[in-house]
Write a protein that binds this DNA or RNA. Structure first.
Lengths: 107, 107
DNA sequence: TATCTTAATCGTAATATTGCAATATTACAA
DNA sequence: TTGTAATATTGCAATATTACGATTAAGATA
């Protein structure tokens, strides 16, 4: 039915899935990489850099924002994003914990 | 148009996105966790453990398989999955490198 | 061989995602 | 206030994903 049955899974499983979803499109990976490379975090040229249309970029940015991974000013001309350090480290830790708990103990 | 323009992005960006896609559903996260916990890697009770229907589990398993993250015997009764250690470490390294390269140097 | 068990596949429905054109909004500058 | 430059929103089309009932396939076992 196209709907994920999230209620079947625990909080941490859903958290990993939600975070992974953000990274599950190369445009969002590229956007995060680009933003992180900018010294001054004025990211008005994302459309040129990435090569997708402005609405599409805006949509992807919104997905990243919704996950809490960006911070800064989002309104009007004084636009200034950057990575939300705290949330980013949280996600990193989440993945780290997930990978750490998977042991490959057979075959 | 519903199709990801993967050609716009480099190999590593697409690789991160592909790997993240596997983890982008809590059922697949749960399946990987469960398989990794099994000593003997006979995973016939996934349907009971996860709580999704048998065809749905089979579909999710196939997604994980397609990403190369499972190894073992997949045919008939002598079914025996486990995590493909080599590929798993590759993915882990991929994420590690991605996270490592993101620096949060503004705002 | 017939039957049972279990996983894969098929078919289909519902929903989500991706992408862009058109339009709206916002902030600033002249 | 009018114009300009930039991002956001809307609406829509194409495709992908999620889920499951029904069926099929393959191996085990009586």
């Amino acid at each position: 039915m196209g709907v994920s049955k999230t209620q079947l899974f625990n909080i941490s499983q859903n958290a990993v899935a939600r975070a992974a979803k953000v990274l599950a499109h190369p445009a969002r990976v590229a956007i995060l990489q680009y933003i992180s490379r900018q010294e001054n975090c004025i990211c008005t040229d994302l459309v040129d850099v990435i090569g997708l249309s402005q609405p599409t970029i805006s949509q992807h940015l919104n997905e990243i924002k919704k996950a809490g991974l960006l911070q800064g000013t989002f309104e009007g001309k004084n636009l200034c994003y950057c990575i939300n350090r705290e949330k980013w480290e949280e996600v990193q830790e989440l993945f780290h914990a997930f990978f750490g708990k998977i042991n490959q103990n057979c075959c």
